[in-house]
Nucleic acid binder design. Structure first.
Ligand SMILES: [Zn+2]
Ligand SMILES: [Zn+2]
Ligand SMILES: [Zn+2]
Ligand SMILES: [Zn+2]
Lengths: 178, 178
DNA sequence: GATGAAACGTTATATAATCACACGGAAGAC
DNA sequence: GTCTTCCGTGTGATTATATAACGTTTCATC
């Protein structure tokens, strides 16, 4: 999931999960940062160096990073190296939808659809730990029905699927040939 | 959510979320333990005193308890009081579907539908911290579609909704009358 | 009763997250 | 401009959550 150059696939686009397919990764980072800058200017938010760096670190990966991994990289770049530095930046980025927390992993990942209003859902590969973001509509399923039936007011949802990504599934079948 | 006696509501049943409605709580605990015992006998699993106690502790609440809260109660009951004691019991109970982990809270709750095969979904009240379990069918939604489109194989899902339960919603409207 | 696997109790450690305080710089009031 | 206030940052310390490692006990099986 590091820098690659091949935008010849039809799996990308505004509402398509990114992460498993090859794609131009430098563009990923650049666009992510640009989108964040635009967003912050529009809303008069302060996109400070630390916040920008944390987002950049996360955009470099299509996997979730723990707060302390992020902190290590911040240290290398000369930023503060105590936990609150990372956690405060993450709090800001999550609050404004630029980063999501993966609860299952206690880790963080850059949003793949910044700007768009969305209820994210994630697919987490248990083998390579890569994470892809998709859309979810939990209010329109069994959960939504249960909420309406009981009078529960949903404000936020966590939807995370754990399994095996196509790349790892291929590897496995090749290692253990029939 | 402590002991109450009123089974006169139509919100209970195999596939109905429990937790917000009044119900006979002693029965909850007894039935939960009985179901676990049955299950363990059937599958030749060892339902040891520690495991039984942890499940009993969780059944007493319809909220999620952190591992260390559980540990405190184990200590009071004369069991081992070091973290691995609680975590090992929880690992067993989770592995066999008798307890679920609420990822959002890093906490654990007794299964409300033991025995039945199910993909649980949870509604978590951010005010009173009570948790209700419902069914989910994540493979049949936007997430399932995304998984099929990309070739991701879903093995397990985390579905947790955060919001306000009906009881707390009532309280709020009463406290701030128009 | 001997044997091996699983469960337990304990010590220590790793990982994740927050608290509390001091400092400095940007934004608004005057 | 200067003052004041708020917000973000850097740091040390602490709390909360989770696992590693090791020896002992318990149980099922032979
Ligand atoms: Zn997103
Ligand atoms: Zn993978
Ligand atoms: Zn359940
Ligand atoms: Zn509530």
């Amino acid at each position: 999931m590091t820098s690659e150059s091949s935008s010849s696939n039809d799996l990308e686009g505004a509402t398509t999960p990114v992460g498993f397919a090859h794609h131009d990764h430098d563009t990923c980072v650049a666009e992510g940062l640009a989108a964040a800058e635009t967003r912050c200017e529009e809303d008069s938010l302060r996109f400070t160096p630390v916040r920008r760096k944390v987002l950049e670190i996360l955009l470099q990966e299509h996997r979730a990073l723990g707060a302390y991994s992020i902190l290590d990289r911040l240290r290398e770049e000369g930023f503060g190296s105590q936990p609150p530095v990372a956690y405060r930046a993450l709090e800001f980025l999550v609050a404004h939808g630029l980063v999501h927390k993966i609860e299952r992993l206690n880790a963080f990942i850059a949003c793949a659809h910044p700007g768009e209003k969305h209820a994210p859902a994630f697919m987490i590969c248990r083998m390579c730990e890569c994470v892809a973001e998709a859309q979810s509509a939990p209010a329109r399923g069994a959960l939504g029905a249960a909420a309406r039936a009981t009078g529960f007011r949903i404000e936020r949802t966590v939807v995370e699927a754990e399994g095996v990504c196509p790349t790892c599934a291929d590897k496995v079948t090749k290692e253990v040939p029939a």
